[in-house]
Design a protein around this nucleic acid. Structure first.
Lengths: 142, 142
DNA sequence: AGAATTAAAGACCTTTTTATCTTTTATTTA
DNA sequence: TAAATAAAAGATAAAAAGGTCTTTAATTCT
């Protein structure tokens, strides 16, 4: 469904968001240990997200990764778009290049319902909203 | 979503089903050319499905792959189960090992709706049913 | 029986994904 | 300014997915 890379990214960002008290930064090691994600790999992933303005970082002592107000307002689908792209929400369920409402594959209609449901959820929930739910309903990230 | 291998398998089986007039067999080359799937790779895939009783085959001249009445009655999910397994329909959307209604991840509830929708579709449609729709509504397989 | 046909089986190759390790650069603080 | 800290960058490695090729076995037809 989502790639491992993308799932790691979402979990990390929701973790940062749910602990985002007054610009608190978290360093790579702290994050990777908390979420049990391989440290060097997570470093790679987070490096990709900084220039794409999905997360923020500062080098040096007391540096680390964090989320700005702008970052927090992004819908979760932006994370997915940055890592996996949006093909998941657009591609044919059977892998056909040509598959549309007009020229559907055999499972097109049902598949589309499920695909759109997912897409809408990810497009409509901001990182901040989800983080608030995590804190109030103590959803699991680990 | 589904692996390439699995999508190839489903398309092949729906192709066989939609042309299943009086035990007609199709050889590997014919199928792979019709569906534009790499011949040796498709061979590999179909070999896996024969001992699992999802498709049938006969060697030698005029041999090939075909579907018995029993094969036709299988729900499409059996193909998925044989190739990818059922983890797609069971696993957490964020890759957590522990994620359930009782201990949900942040996207558990919405994810489950989409996941179950897909699962129900694949579990409730038999290969034969889908093949009939293909023939009557000329859905695309290529 | 022998040639032709077609699936089965297995070894091999390529690409992508996932993960690790090392070096460099920026920043802070003592 | 020097030492410490932490991200950035890049090279490398391991595993999985996707795909190819060659040989073998079963069947049919002449």
């Amino acid at each position: 469904m989502l790639s491992q890379k993308c799932k790691y990214a979402i979990r990390t960002i929701l973790y940062l968001a749910s602990k985002n008290e007054e610009g608190e930064k978290k360093d790579l090691k702290k994050i990777s240990e908390a979420l049990k994600i391989p440290t060097p790999y997570l470093g790679k992933i987070l490096q990709e997200l900084v220039p794409k303005k999905i997360i923020s970082s500062i080098k040096g002592p007391n540096g680390g990764f964090f989320l700005t107000e702008q970052n927090l307002q992004l819908p979760v689908i932006k994370i997915i778009e940055a890592i996996d792209g949006l093909t998941l929400f657009e591609a044919c369920g059977l892998g056909l290049h040509v598959c549309s409402d007009k020229h559907p594959c055999p499972i097109h209609n049902d598949f589309k319902v499920a695909r759109d449901h997912l897409k809408n959820m990810f497009a409509n929930k901001s990182i901040e909203e989800l983080a608030k739910e995590i804190n109030s309903k103590h959803f699991m990230l680990i």
